[in-house]
Design a protein around this nucleic acid. Structure first.
Length: 143
DNA sequence: CTTCTTACA
DNA sequence: TGTAAGAA
């Protein structure tokens, strides 16, 4: 029975807190390439089954954090710095302070970008208004 | 077919 | 990061 559906093929890594590189890549919508890069960068350290990488639940949690960090604008090196601090001193205020620093840096960068965007938008509107005005003048002459 | 490594863009 | 190539 059941030869064409469901999970009838748990090779050895199903719901035991283990994932293949493609499992995680699919779940987080990243390519396996990215996961290998994060490993090279020292952010992930999956176990091995021969050559195959076996990711644990912890790796999965970390991957989520890596992606969040990147979204915030952290480099892989910065994420690693945070990870290393957490690994060496879990629950210490130092790591939280550094995280706060990163967030502050990011906030400043984003606010700067925001003001620059505001200037660009203002320029666009100004040019737009002048162009519209010129267009109206042209149309009046024509008529 | 899936994953791995290495190299190049 | 993507993609390609060759091996496992």
């Amino acid at each position: 029975m059941n030869t064409t559906s469901c999970e009838v093929k748990p090779s050895a890594t199903e719901r035991c807190g283990c994932y293949t590189i493609s499992d995680l890549a699919k779940e987080f919508e990243v390519t396996p390439r990215a996961l290998r890069l994060y490993e090279e960068s020292g952010l992930l350290e999956p176990q091995r089954d021969g050559q195959k990488r076996i990711y644990s639940e912890r790796d999965r949690v970390r991957l989520r954090l890596i992606i969040r960090g990147k979204r915030i604008g952290c480099s892989l090196a910065e994420v690693k710095e945070l990870f290393d601090m957490y690994d060496s001193s879990p629950g210490e205020s130092g790591q939280i302070k550094r995280l706060l620093e990163k967030l502050d840096e990011r906030r400043q960068a984003l606010e700067l970008q925001r003001s620059e965007l505001a200037l660009s938008l203002a320029d666009i509107e100004q040019i737009e208004q002048r162009a519209l005005e010129t267009l109206r003048e042209l149309e009046n002459k024509g008529h």
